[in-house]
């Protein structure tokens, strides 16, 4: 398992048609995500971050350029990639445990094995007591944790998160991002997360990629060398503040 979960984007260009005409969303985007690293992508609104994530997930084909996973070109969605969106996007007609089992229903796993994995994932998420509740009974933070668990349950090699905390209030946001770190430390994956929050990006990741306004390009690649495990208190440290200034400067350029 040497190169599991290495995701490479090479020279991606993408444009799409909108009401206002043709929009150049991405321009020559290239990067390589190492195995089991946590990377955040920050950039101004509308810079093509979500488009880039959909391309990386294999949901959209770029106009030119390519994405490869473990060295082979990605031209359709794969189970090796887990997805989390800004909204939890749970199925309201399924209970919590049925929601988290959903991805497993398309694998060849036996019913008992599906159930076993779902139970242990709910335990990891701290949602066991809600197993038979419907999503309408969950708070926003619980629902988003469930969505993260659902993305992890089939053990993907890459996890793509599109502003996963964007719909949460500030306190819940901090709590769920710490939870994500805890879960990630137990299920190491290659993670790429889109976020608007510079602090969140630095707190969570090994590396921060900064995008320019549209058409999106990677304008800065900042390595976050803060020791792990990290906590919210680290935000007060001088190293943290230095990195924050560095990212902010790149965004303003």
């Amino acid at each position: 398992m040497t190169n599991n979960g290495s995701l490479v984007a090479s020279n991606i260009y993408h444009a799409y048609d909108a009401a206002a005409g043709r929009i150049q969303a991405l321009e020559n985007v290239s990067f390589s995500l190492g195995n089991e690293t946590f990377t955040c992508l920050v950039g101004p609104s509308g810079c093509g971050k979500s488009t880039l994530l959909r391309i990386l997930a294999g949901l959209v084909q770029p106009e030119s350029g390519s994405v490869s996973l473990n060295g082979s070109t990605l031209d359709s969605p794969r189970r090796k990639i887990g997805l989390v969106f800004q909204d939890a996007t749970l199925m309201p007609w399924r209970t919590v445990i049925q929601n988290i089992m959903l991805p497993l229903e398309f694998t060849g796993l036996s019913r008992q094995e599906q159930r076993r994995r779902a139970d242990s994932m709910l335990e990891l998420l701290g949602l066991s007591e809600f197993a038979n509740a419907y999503p309408s009974a969950l708070s926003g933070g619980m629902a988003q944790r469930l969505a993260i668990g659902r993305a992890l349950i089939y053990d993907p090699e890459v996890l793509l998160l599109d502003e996963p905390f964007g719909a949460l209030d500030a306190l819940t946001r901090e709590y769920v991002s710490e939870e994500l770190l805890r879960i990630w430390s137990q299920h190491k994956k290659t993670v790429l997360m889109v976020t608007h929050s510079i602090q969140e990006a630095i707190l969570l990741s090994d590396r921060v990629l900064v995008m320019s306004p549209r058409p999106g390009r990677i304008v800065k690649d900042v390595t976050i060398d803060l020791p792990r495990p990290r906590s919210l208190d680290d935000m007060l440290g001088t190293d943290f503040v230095r990195l924050e200034a560095q990212v902010r400067a790149a965004l303003r350029r």
Binding site: P77, R78, R79, I81, L83, F85, D87, T89, L102, F106
Partner: peptide
Amino acid sequence: VDSHLRDLMRAYQANPLQ
């Protein structure tokens, strides 16, 4: 039907019947 749920079903490689 929620378009993100459709995206997820595609990522799970669900067939049209599923």
